[in-house]
Amino acid sequence: MVNIDVILAQVFNGIQFGVLMALLATGLSLIFGMLGIINFAHGSLYMIGAYFVWTCMQMLNVPGKFWVGLIITLPLMAIVGLMIERFLLRWMYGQPVVYQILLTFGLLLVIQQSVALIYGTTPLPLGMPSSFEGEISLGLFRYPVYRLFTMILGLAIIFGVWYFIERSALGAIIRASAEDPETAKTLGVNTRRVYTWTFALGSALAGLGGGLHAPLIGGLQHTIGTEILLICFIVVVIGGMGSIRGALLGGIILGIVRGIAGVFWAPASDFVMFAAMGIILMIRPQGLLGRGGTR
């Protein structure tokens, strides 16, 4: 069964899943790196992103409504992010980690169960846009079009965010506010506002990830955010907290490792993620591409 085409397809699966996780992890990593907040509610932001797309698709009746829904979801998610930051997380900056965890975990439960109350617990269908159905030939093997597309789109978005943070003038302000808020303030930067918008950006990325992933999971349920959160979290830890390139690298490594484990010993595919995290933390506590010290 060791066909080269199957192995290649498996590598593709790993990368595809990894990129998707990296897309979510980018938001998580951004929020951690810039705001110093461990956001457990990130999984639920992913979940409401998917529900928003579904709602938009129900209300609209235009061709390509999936894409329209996805685009409408972005500002909606940013607004959700703004409100969360404005009313809750603002009081968490510089607070002990345990309080952040408790608060964001509480938020996760509230959002998840509110969605269950509003939308019900029956899975909601969100099929993929019909033009993206089917498979495309990639030389040696055939691969689903939609997956290939999300992979490319995900990579593009991650690159865009990286470019924005690391290369643009606005990104420099964000980085400055994260690294040295006092100096940034004296230079006239409204760090509060920068934090708020950074969180909104992270939320929008989570919502986008949710919307993109939704057609692949066969039915939206209010619990879809919890498992993905843990994986994202591990991706961030492996890649290095606050590093966008690290999130991408961590995501792809994790995707491939999971894939290999899935073929050889599937029950271990969840555990290998933790094992990878443990090993990396013991060898290189700041993560593969992390900047910080050992803390």
Partner: peptide
Amino acid sequence: GAGLLVLGAIFILVV
């Protein structure tokens, strides 16, 4: 499953 909802709200209040 609203028990979890109330629990979550309590966590937020505590913090």
